[in-house]
Write a protein that binds this DNA or RNA. Structure first.
Lengths: 207, 207
DNA sequence: GTCTATAGGCAGATAGAC
DNA sequence: GTCTATCTGCCTATAGAC
């Protein structure tokens, strides 16, 4: 859930600034509820200039999802590299979503998932890829943690990963719909309680 | 999750047909991705005629959410009236969402929750009410079931209710975004497994 | 790469006849 | 209550000068 620096480039230059602005607009309003005029205004150039960087809105959308996927994976790898404890990794994973929510945004691909039926076809495959990669990473972290004993759960790591992603995305959605951000924290608490290893007593959520 | 007959009226007449069509369009495409022209075409009247029934799109939106809330509550009461076993009630509750998903739709208020930032203000309060009523009902069913011993869970009924709603909404969202409807069934299985009472061996999901 | 100007279409909404 | 006709404004996108 970016909004942080990443290993990949694409964040500098006009194209990068356009993507930054468009990403925020998608996360707050959705793909069908922002226009080139909105982006142009926020970036400080004219509408027509946007078309030089992204010929069509569909092109912009594809670039948006592609960058988001890479950026998100970078963040996951960073969590993996800087935390060796399974449960702590999951806390930090959940906190990614919490930070986005508190920034007034929805997970970009969660937002796009709800717009799916109306999106240009090339975007849809990339959105599905986001969820697949996300669950793959989570699944691996869960399996390793279970083996090491610093994460607890029943059933397959893959289905647990799918469950976690759904709960967090749904938690964000319902919190935004209810206008009650604490709702999300309750969901995270309950989710983490189910995977917390018997002995550990790590404090929940930092931000 | 309607698309079924309800005790309340509002389903007959031109206004009712307009609401039926608009409801489907919102559930499939979202509030910002359908037009009066779409509705008029599907209903078989002219755009201008729609304004006689719902002067503005905001008015249509408010009527849509209000009817949906009442209709949904009717369905919940019907589950409560025709199932006396707690776990079975939860199975039927989850199945409501599954049926909507398999119809190619999203929960209407889940969809509207993602559109929230762009919606006319009068709609937002009503959407929040939907989630509150929904969780209230679920909370009561959970508390009763726990007391009777035909539902199991830790923590408060209210937080468990919030968790269930989030997981189901998120399950629908991610399933649609992944293009994999089985994803949702896995989420439901895992969710129900956590509330299943020790002795019972009810089969999961009927539809 | 950015600009001005504009095309062509669709959005939500209104006026007024029947 | 439904129609035809129309308004105004915004949308995505393009042409062509600088």
């Amino acid at each position: 859930m970016p909004t942080k620096k990443s290993t990949t480039p694409d964040r500098a230059g006009t194209a990068g600034r356009i993507l930054d602005v468009a990403e925020r607009l998608v996360q707050v309003r959705g793909f069908n509820a922002f226009s080139y005029a909105d982006v142009a205004k926020a970036v400080g150039i004219q509408k027509a200039s946007l078309h030089h960087h992204f010929a069509t809105k569909a092109d912009l959308g594809v670039a948006l999802v592609t960058r988001y996927r890479h950026s998100f994976l970078d963040t996951l790898r960073s969590i993996e590299a800087t935390s060796s404890h399974g449960f702590e990794r999951l806390e930090r994973y959940a906190d990614l979503y919490g930070k986005v929510l508190r920034a007034g945004r929805m997970c970009m691909c969660g937002m796009l998932a709800s717009d799916a039926a109306t999106l240009p076809k090339p975007m849809r495959g990339s959105i599905a890829e986001f969820f697949a990669e996300n669950e793959e990473w989570l699944s691996r972290i869960l399996a390793e943690g279970k083996k090491r004993g610093d994460i607890t759960f029943d059933g397959s790591a893959a289905s647990m990963a799918a469950f976690i992603v759904s709960s967090l995305e749904g938690g964000m959605l319902v919190s935004r719909g209810s206008g009650d951000l604490d709702h999300f924290d309750d969901v995270v608490d309950r989710l983490l309680e189910r995977v917390r290893p018997a002995k550990t007593k790590t404090k929940r959520r930092s931000g």
